[in-house]
């Protein structure tokens, strides 16, 4: 990282540890402690902390006035969407469990946004782990094909249905994500027990790793929109990303089904979660797919 990048106030000179998690085109994500008594001042190599801190560093190639304006707008937009969703996404009673990280703090002037740290693995890692387990099982059984057992398939299908339901709920809230991929979704490692107390599930089997609450991340490209076109494009982006990240699942190699049959689990659960409006969106998705790309031909 260039030396010009100093942490913004109030993190600059802080004694907390900042562990870089990801560096994208938009900004850099660190894990750290934010307004927490469990300070990590003791020298330790453990990556810990209660917060994910996303910093949008100034882009030196952009005019400074323009750069400040854009950083400000984007941090504000992302924070607003997250706050709106953490209120509305988890509706009571219908059994759809999904969430976004809570916003802990932000500064649109300094260009940072701190959100709750989500324990767990990304959906991408979860599905890759599932695929790896199928490979091991297959080798044990000395089978040649990829077809997984019905019980194993049900674990994966249940995950896909929960993804569809959460995306549906997101759209019902009037938000489109703009960048739905399996790396922008987490399966939370702890799930609240009926008593409301968090209980660790690390001790139980690997399949449980696919069973936590789905948490959506990275709303940097999110928009407030209820247009069918935007919703359909959101689903199309997910479908394309899913196909390029998990091609064997997409091609139906584990279930012996036709290509796309597994992803239909996502779409069916989406339809259930969205009702009438969802049916229109799914019809629109057909159009978007037929275009061969995600936008209409305008000249």
């Amino acid at each position: 990282m260039p030396a010009s990048r100093l942490l913004p106030t109030p993190f600059h000179g802080s004694e907390e540890a900042f562990h870089m998690i990801a560096q994208g085109a938009e900004g850099v994500v660190y894990r750290t402690n934010f307004l927490s008594s469990n300070s990590s001042t003791s020298p330790s190599n453990d990556i810990s902390g209660n917060a994910a801190l996303k910093i949008r560093y100034p882009k030196p190639w952009r005019h400074p006035i323009l750069d400040r304006r854009l950083t400000r707008q984007r941090i504000l937009a992302e924070a607003r969407v997250l706050v709106k969703l953490s209120r509305e996404l988890r509706a009571p009673g219908d059994g759809i469990s999904g969430a976004v990280p809570n916003v802990l703090g932000m500064s649109s002037e300094e260009g940072w946004l701190a959100t709750e740290w989500i324990e767990g693995a990304t959906v991408k890692a979860g599905i890759r782990g599932w695929e790896e387990r199928q490979r091991v099982l297959r080798e044990k059984a000395q089978r040649g094909d990829d077809v997984a057992s019905e019980a194993q398939l049900e674990v994966l299908r249940a995950l896909l249905r929960r993804i569809g339901a959460v995306v549906g709920r997101l759209h019902v809230c009037g938000i489109v994500h703009g960048d739905l991929t399996t790396s922008n979704m987490m399966v939370r490692a702890c799930k609240p027990s009926p008593m409301g107390k968090a209980e660790a599930v690390a001790s139980t089997s690997d399949d449980d790793k696919l069973e936590g609450e789905i948490v959506l991340l990275d709303f940097g490209l999110a928009q407030q929109s209820i247009a069918d076109e935007d919703r359909a494009v959101d689903l199309y982006v997910l479908e394309r990303a899913f196909g390029s990240t998990h091609p064997k699942v997409m091609e139906g190699r584990y279930s012996g089904q036709s290509a796309g049959a597994m992803f239909d689990e996502v779409l069916q659960a989406y339809a259930v979660a969205t009702g009438k409006a969802g049916k229109i969106t799914l019809r629109k998705l057909e159009d978007v797919r037929m275009r061969g790309r995600k936008k209409s031909m305008l000249g």
Binding site: G24, A25, E26, K59, W61, R62, H63, L66
Partner: peptide, 18 residues
């Protein structure tokens, strides 16, 4: 110029990261 070129560099950067 500053506005449209910033847009172009931004999408190029995103594609490079992608």
């Amino acid at each position: 110029q500053e506005t449209v070129y910033a847009m172009l560099v931004e999408i190029t950067e995103r594609a490079m990261a992608h």
